[in-house]
Write a protein that binds this DNA or RNA. Structure first.
Lengths: 317, 317
DNA sequence: TATAGGCACAACTGTCTGTTGTTCTTAGAG
DNA sequence: CTCTAAGAACAACAGACAGTTGTGCCTATA
């Protein structure tokens, strides 16, 4: 591909060979191999060089695009000058949506979105942030009770509210809102999560606070299977983040019902290094701070005891 | 790349090898080579298979994108099921803009836009259309006097009007419109074009009809150089299609002045095969017919004598 | 008609890729 | 705690492949 593009750019095999530091015959072989593989003639050989055939002209922009993608791919793992890397835990949650709108507002910033696995020890992503291989991650700061992990900086991003997700036959399906107390009589299905992970600790404490029955879905066949189960069940319900994005067929007729009085919120913090940060990180942090400011104060919210903050607080070390 | 993606998809080297019909050791070597080339660890080897490293997770979407682009590139030259290929003569002219809006309206149709060189014999693109390597091209139908070339089908697309392009010091710079008669006293610069090509015949006849002085710009340093010359000159002017797209620095202060009474129009026809056409071609033809219908009738227009049609006519064989 | 620019073919060589055979590590069972 | 089996890496080797040198052919231009 690169050879073909070089030939097109220079207009002749010899010059392309000089640019690529191979001989003219080598170029000839490479182009011939590409043409044989594709089964078409890409270049029309003339007495004074070479010009594109019809197929070559159609192929050329695709070849250039391929080289661009290849360069971007290589750049994505080069330590210096790689794209900004952000861990969103899970592409369905609100943080992913936040990052998506950030990308729309700043399309010029190259962004790689990761979902690092939640391991039992919980600090896998934090280790990556410390090591400098990830620039920012989102945490609930359970284990550190609102304090920044050592060597890292943190700031509140949002208080994620919850919806109850139920099928049309569920007893609460017609409600326009429910309270945590209402949920005490209905089993809540959730996927298994490590007990000492932040979400694990959060939902365990939520269940204790309101005497909820949380059933672990096993085996875990994925979200699609869970949604399918919910659609046909008159008993099953699950909790989802308000900002999370789930899609289901319209025939499922699932309902999202806000949970209020109090509204359990999942506190999401951005965690990142302070020194030697990625040059684009400050832009993202500014964006998050701005969005964070619009989050209302903590009236009628429920947060677990280990959360140090009961409302948005200033960013701090 | 393909091997790396296969490993990620299957979760283990052996299964990836089976899918690619090579041994587990071969997969191991390929991935190791990729990692060595990139200088990072992409996959974390575990006792029960393999999982993505942080770098691997950032790299994966780029790798998938690369494979997609590669498949598209290969598909662009596969005779069956390739993208719709349209020759627009020149990316600056109105036909290119027309095709761009077609693409915006039908983003689902894969489109390859070509600019086949205008050769002296003039029918190079027509040959490609007959051969089936190009699906549609735009012509003025000079040589055939409005008749469809044998075996091909044709229809009017638009009557392209002209603007006079001049710098701020040109005598006509302040006019809001000019007539062809006005131009008789001012030299018109144009690039050399083959005398028996359709644009060549068109502008020769236009010059004769209104006693214009057409100077050939030589040597041809490209459009940028021409625009630069125009900007500083009090004598030079050129004719450009109304729908053509030229960009210049604001400091040039060039003006586009409509040419009217009569308005010389360049008649553009779509030429394509009738039988065994590309499945997407009818969609493009429908789009062109629709746009064509909005073109006003031929009052105050000038067309060369060899143009059989003096206004839009129905599409015909 | 002579010349020179430019590409393809042929023969050869060194590297590289993929294979077989084997070892090392580790999760899970007994 | 030990055994077993799954799964990846290492080593040695054979075949393929890419790139080099040398040469011939074609054609635009003088």
């Amino acid at each position: 591909m690169r050879t073909f593009v070089a030939v097109v750019d220079t207009g002749q095999f010899q010059a392309a060979g000089d640019r690529l530091s191979i001989t003219q015959q080598g170029v000839s072989k490479r182009v011939a191999a590409l043409e044989r593989e594709l089964g078409v003639l890409l270049l029309v050989r003339t007495a004074r060089g070479v010009r594109l055939s019809v197929d070559g002209q159609a192929f050329l922009p695709h070849a250039r695009e391929l080289l661009r993608v290849q360069d971007r791919a290589a750049a994505s793992v080069r330590p210096e000058r790689r794209a900004l890397r952000v861990d969103v835990l899970n592409r369905r949650i609100a943080a992913a949506g936040l990052l998506q709108s950030f990308h729309q507002q700043h399309p010029e910033i190259a962004l790689d979105v990761l979902t690092l696995p939640v391991l039992a020890d919980g600090d896998d992503a934090l280790t990556a942030v410390r090591a400098g291989t990830v620039d920012l991650t989102f945490r609930a700061l359970a284990t550190t009770a609102g304090q920044a992990p050592s060597g890292l900086r943190t700031g509140p991003v949002l208080h994620e509210r919850h919806d109850l997700l139920v099928g049309p036959q569920h007893p609460l399906a017609a409600r326009d809102r429910v309270t945590p107390a209402d949920l005490a009589q209905h089993p809540i299905w959730m996927f298994a999560m490590p007990a000492d992970s932040e979400p694990g600790a959060y939902y365990r404490e939520l269940a204790e606070a309101f005497s909820l029955t949380i059933d672990i879905v096993a085996p875990n066949f994925g979200n699609e299977a869970l949604l399918d189960e919910l659609a046909g069940s008159s008993r099953l319900a699950t909790l989802v983040g308000r900002g999370s994005r789930y899609l289901w067929p319209t025939s499922y007729d699932l309902r999202r019902i806000p949970v209020v009085d109090p509204a359990p919120v999942f506190p999401l913090y951005a965690v990142h290094v302070e020194q030697h940060a990625h040059p684009d990180l400050p832009v993202l942090l500014d964006y998050l701070r701005e969005r964070c400011g619009t989050d209302e104060a903590g009236d009628g919210l429920w947060l677990p005891a280990w959360t140090a903050l009961n409302g948005p607080a200033p960013w701090r070390a």
